[in-house]
């Protein structure tokens, strides 16, 4: 900043003001307006209607399915994230870059293709269907994957798969392996090394990864849409929002915004937590 003062102080200030104004305008129009719009639309018919919309059996069932899918997806992906980031950052081996890239696949492929891939594995034409049938016949169970809760869970796991590992890998890369190596040479066992040395470093990144994973799992739409067709049974909240919106009547659209507002509130809470964590991490 000091060098700016030398010459054209006024001109520099104008650039600064214009750029900040542009940024604020962009963020307001593109990101803040939609948030306001959801809340305004959801309250269009008053508070009574708002709470009524949230209490229908469809919405409550969707909430239940969403919570189940999210909890399982977060547990699976957190476990995976911890294990994968340990393997990738603490050792050097051939094909490491390829492995890291493969883990990131769910980020760059269409969620619809993710859903389709499970349909093609477990569905009518899927090669794993005879396998599931054999299990069902042998054990007398009735496991269904496609168009049932397990399919919804799998789709949710797929799309949020790299979220935790993505937060952990950069932090562990920066930290290096010296401390763990020292501990190992002094005779510490694997889990002790993780608990005493690695964990304190990745605490914040882990919490943030889990939160982000949760937020994405709650809101997944495309992949789940391919695997879930029964409203009131296997629908998640985003699918219920879709069904209400597409029903098309003025009331049902307001209802769909009411349900949306729940997810918006969660998104805002996630953003605030992230902001606080990032602040804390920087301070440390």
């Amino acid at each position: 900043m000091a060098k700016n003062r030398k010459g054209s102080e006024k001109k520099v200030d104008i650039t600064k003001i214009v750029l900040i104004a542009l940024s604020v305008l962009f963020v307001f129009l593109m990101l803040v307006m939609p948030l306001i719009s959801v809340i305004v639309n959801s309250l269009r018919e008053g508070f009574k209607f708002y709470f009524q919309s949230l209490g229908t059996s469809y919405v409550l069932s969707a909430l239940g399915v969403t919570v189940i899918a999210t909890v399982i997806a977060v547990i699976v992906n957190t476990f995976f994230g911890l294990v994968a980031s340990w393997a990738i950052t603490k050792f050097s081996f051939k094909g490491k870059q390829v492995l890291a890239t493969l883990i990131d696949i769910p980020f760059s492929i269409s969620p619809v293709v993710a859903g389709l891939s499970y349909v093609m594995t477990f569905g009518r034409l899927g090669w794993a269907r005879p396998l599931i049938n054999a299990i069902n016949n042998t054990f007398g169970t009735d496991i269904q994957i496609v168009f049932a809760i397990p399919g919804v869970v799998l789709a949710t796991i797929f799309v949020t798969f790299p979220f935790v590992s993505r937060e952990l890998i950069p932090v562990l890369n920066v930290e290096g392996t010296d401390e763990e190596e020292a501990a190992a040479l002094m005779g510490a066992k694997g889990f002790t090394i993780f608990r005493k040395i690695t964990f304190p470093h990745i605490k914040w990144a882990l919490v943030y990864g889990v939160i982000l994973c949760t937020a994405r799992a709650l809101g997944e739409f495309g992949a789940v849409n391919a695997l879930s067709k029964t409203r009131g049974e296997t629908f998640t909240l985003p699918l219920e929002i879709d069904a209400l919106y597409l029903a098309g009547s003025a009331d049902s659209i307001v209802s769909s915004f009411a349900v949306s507002s729940l997810l918006v509130i969660i998104a805002i809470v996630v953003l605030i937590i992230r902001n606080i964590f990032e602040h804390n991490a920087k301070k440390e």
């Binding site: 959801v38 994405r216 809101g219 659209i253 949306s260 996630v270 953003l271």
Partner: peptide, 22 residues
Amino acid sequence: LDGLIELPFCLPTAVAGITLSK
């Protein structure tokens, strides 16, 4: 401002979709 940038990561796509459409 910095925090809001991340909003599209956290907001469910279906919610963003119906809101922008409206």
